[in-house]
Design a protein around this nucleic acid. Structure first.
Length: 667
DNA sequence: GTGAAATCAAATCG
DNA sequence: CCGATTTGATTTCA
């Protein structure tokens, strides 16, 4: 449907320009550029052939510094309209590493209120925080101005890693030390002072590396990647000539329920101007034609593209919001009307430019499907688990007539044959109703190296060699935060027929980075069966094998010191190799396809049951995943000394992941 | 350059 | 679990 038109751009002349009053057309309205997912297929073999034993030397966060990570993706196309902002935020001088910590603290203590508060604080917290700022930015000056997909993802992933780490530290501090509060703001601040950001110059139109439908959890993320650089305000703008207030155009807006917008139509947004709100010491008042309001008025006349970000309450985390980038709009008309307070409010009608992929419209469809599952086109089964999980899993085929995948038994967890009991009995903790982060007496936390593995909302804080959840001999309740895998997934999944990769898995809900997806369920087997003649490598299908070689990647926040031992920091430590077959019985994990640039990764988790500890394989979201995006993980490569690969060429399949980093094949 | 005002946050409290 | 309140950071503007 959408094929042919680059997603983030809009064909010229597709919009009625009759309303343009007094300006020559903006050059930013013109370019149509090739976009990553639709670009030429990149097929490349790994540099050294199949990986040798051990992990391949692939460190996205510490690659060659200063060189553009992906050349040629959208860069420079927007230079014509993008302009540097003099002091969007002061960066520290490129000082030698290690001194940045001090300088950032110094910078902060200039503030009026922070000095006295900080005096009493223990040095541990200060030191812990300082340690977190001790890392290499790895982003060049040019990359700070103009980004690309890889940079945007890199910045977001590092922000999240830092935020989770701070959050974990905050959870563990029962004291009133405010040093770790507001992890997102603190993480953002550290990112800025270290210069880890991209698309820092304001621009009209698409932001390189940001795709329509991308989701965000904090306003800070929008700033870090240059989508909307106001921390709270809903209207971002940019000077056109000299910086005269009347000459500014709006470049992006956030609509998230703060005002009486009309935001139901997926193609039309009636946005309320800013100001006029009642506050503690102020009555509601008429809005004035200043700031963002005058910028939107200007954008109406200039007819420039305005990015629209729509925010909603997150269904799974009621307290927080999800922001969706909904693409480019234009201001079509403006008027003034009385709001509920009886005061005058500016209203701006924004219309979505045609030819863009759906984003908010997808959310609307899903809302409908949830109310009435049968309204889902191509629905085969409302719940393929037949109630085995607490959330149903839809089975859908919108592609052809196939009525479902080959028969298998749905099981929600992994089954060990008697002979496979892994470790000696282990003992649980003594925590009353729920284990508390920061309780150093909790033996389960001790097993996890002293850190609580999940942050409050049940999100994985860091990848670990092994994670130990509470087990059946722990007296804590089932809602203890250290029981995530064992309580099952909380996301509404859909098993769907893909166009060219068989069946796949995706979600109706937005998934934030670190969210538990599911475990790999099935039967633990000793060996992968020898291939029989006439078998076309089917034995390798529906198998998870920890003994394959998995490309390493960095997900945790890495400080300098950790970088030195980076070889081991995110490596798994499994007592003995584990092979799980989901051919006859399994769960949704068996439908997850391979990708060379996956959005999901696996993590070993152990907990005890009937006095014996069992190893489980859990999948977690690598980054924020918008609804209806296929979930994929890296299948890894069989070791050359394994039975599995006796016939390597046999099990080799052409990879269709479409990633620029595609290895070309998978097993 | 400084400080205060404004801002479609986010966390906490009751 | 919800609304109200508090806490708070950043940018803009006088």
């Amino acid at each position: 449907m959408e094929g042919g038109v680059a997603r983030n751009s809009v064909p010229p002349n597709s919009f009625d320009k009759s309303k343009v009053l007094d300006v020559k057309p903006l050059r930013s309205l013109l370019p149509v550029f090739p976009e990553a997912p639709n670009g030429p297929p990149f097929v490349c073999a790994p540099p050294n052939g199949p990986f040798p034993t051990g992990f391949s030397p692939f460190f996205p966060f510490s690659g060659p510094q200063g060189s553009p990570l992906t050349p040629g993706l959208n860069q420079n196309l927007f230079n014509s309209t993008a302009m540097p902002i003099r002091s969007f935020r002061a960066e520290p001088p490129p000082a030698s590493n290690g001194e940045n910590v001090q300088s950032s603290n110094k910078r902060k203590s200039v503030g009026p209120s922070s000095v006295k508060k900080k005096v009493k604080r223990s040095n541990d917290s200060e030191l812990a925080l300082a340690a977190l700022t001790n890392f290499k930015p790895g982003i060049s000056a040019a990359e700070k101005d103009d980004g690309n997909r890889e940079l945007v993802e890199n910045v977001l992933m590092r922000f999240e890693a830092l935020r989770r780490k701070l959050s974990q530290m905050e959870d563990a501090k029962e004291s009133h030390s405010d040093i770790f509060k507001r992890a997102n703001l603190k993480a953002g601040n550290i990112m800025f002072t270290k210069g880890v950001r991209t698309n820092g110059k304001k621009r009209i139109g698409a932001v390189p590396g940001v795709e329509i439908g991308d989701i965000f959890l904090f306003r800070m993320e929008l700033i870090l990647i240059g989508l909307h650089s106001q921390s709270m305000a809903g209207i971002d703008f940019m000077p056109m000539k000299a910086d005269i207030e009347g000459e500014r155009v709006a470049i992006s807006i956030v609509s998230s329920g703060g005002y009486e917008d009309n935001a139901e139509d997926p193609d039309v947004l009636v946005y309320t101007g800013q100001g006029g709100n009642a506050s503690a010491d102020k009555e509601a008042s008429d809005q004035k034609l200043v700031r963002g309001n005058i910028a939107l008025e200007r954008s109406l006349h200039r007819a420039n593209e305005v990015r629209v970000i729509r925010g909603f309450k997150d269904a799974t985390h009621q307290t927080s919001k999800v922001y969706v980038y909904d693409g480019l709009y234009k201001v079509q008309e403006s008027w003034m009307e009385k709001g509920k307070t009886g005061c005058n409010m500016f209203k701006y009608k924004l219309v979505r430019l045609p030819g863009q992929t759906g984003a908010f419209s997808t959310w609307k469809s899903i809302r409908k499907w949830k109310e009435d599952p049968s309204s889902r086109d191509g629905l085969i089964l409302p719940d393929l688990t037949s109630g085995a999980e607490s959330i149903p899993v839809s089975l859908v085929n919108e592609v052809n007539d196939e009525k479902g995948p080959a028969y298998f038994t749905y099981v929600s967890t992994v089954k060990y044959p008697k002979s496979f009991k892994l470790v000696q009995p282990s003992y649980g903790c003594n925590c009353r109703d729920a284990c508390q982060a920061g309780n150093s007496n909790c033996s389960c936390i001790q097993k996890n190296g002293g850190d609580f593995p999940y942050i409050t909302t049940g999100i994985l804080a860091c990848r670990m060699p092994m994670i130990f959840e509470c087990g059946s001999s722990c007296p804590c309740f089932r809602n203890c935060k250290n029981r995530v895998l064992q309580t099952g997934f909380k996301v509404h999944f859909e098993v769907f027929k893909t166009r060219d990769k068989g069946w796949g898995l995706r979600s109706w809900d937005p998934i934030r980075a670190g969210t538990f997806i599911c475990e790999y369920a099935g039967e633990v087997i000793e060996k992968i069966k020898e291939k029989a003649d006439g078998d076309d490598g089917e034995n390798n299908d529906y198998v998870f094998n920890t003994n394959r070689v998995y490309e390493s990647f960095k997900w945790n926040h890495e400080t300098e010191s950790a970088e030195e031992r980076s070889d081991t920091s995110e490596k798994f430590d499994i007592p003995s190799p584990l092979i799980i077959s989901s051919k006859n019985s399994g769960n949704i994990a068996r439908f997850m396809n391979h990708s060379c640039s996956p959005n999901v990764f696996w993590q070993p988790i152990m907990y005890e049951h009937n006095n014996e500890a069992f190893l489980h394989i859990a999948f977690f979201a690598k980054k924020h995943i918008p609804p209806m995006t296929e979930l994929t993980y890296d299948y890894g490569i069989p070791r050359s000394d394994e039975t599995e690969s006796n016939n390597m060429e046999h099990g080799k399949k052409k990879c269709l992941c479409g990633s620029p980093k595609c290895r070309g094949y998978f097993y």
